[in-house]
Amino acid sequence: MPPAPLAALAVGQSDLLPYYYKISLRSRDTLLGNDEIENPVHLLSGRFDLAFVILYLYPLVILALSYNLISGEKEDGTLAITLSQPVGLRALALGKIGFRGLFVLALATLLSFAGALLSGVNLAAEGVLPRLALWVAVVAAYGAFWFALAVLVNAMGRGSSTNALTLAGLWLVFVLLIPSLLNVGTKAAHPVPSRVEMIQAMRAPPTRSPRSVRS
């Protein structure tokens, strides 16, 4: 199976699943597939691809920029000065978050665009532009989620260090804990039929013994 046009952005499970099959009259060759050779420790670590950057590091960057959005101003004493001007708290927060958001999003989308182009993605090919647009939309939405979370935590009115700890904890929950618990949960709720049983079913002796064939 040739790699999809944007495969360079996210390796996903493609390093685990076979992408070509040997077709032959011997059904087992076809069915059993042929896995790519790879050190299993590397499979365990996973690949450092753009999807990894967006999933794990990009939220951290966002949180590092906005954990002290309001609390920092409060601690520096600039909040009172700013609010004495005809600016509402809402407008201040929006303005600050807007600037940061635009900065990070522009950076992330531009860089992934540039990366995609450099890695030889053919923009003219059918379906590539809509897919790239979707990718950007997903990256933007994901970023917006983390910014919103930062604003929410800031709105609680605690100090900067409390905010930082809270946000780091939330990052841990959303990025590490929930996915791995979901992984366990899905496996428990809908276990895949056992491969071991499949092997046995495949090998159940046929009712009539086939004529022996030498090969």
Binding site: P3, A8, R47, F48, G115, S119
Partner: peptide, 20 residues
């Protein structure tokens, strides 16, 4: 932040492209 993002995104795309 800019440097970190650029570095990691660049590396990530480079890696993905290598696999493809």
């Amino acid at each position: 932040v800019a440097a970190l993002l650029a570095l990691t995104i660049g590396y990530g795309v480079y890696n993905g492209a290598g696999w493809v």
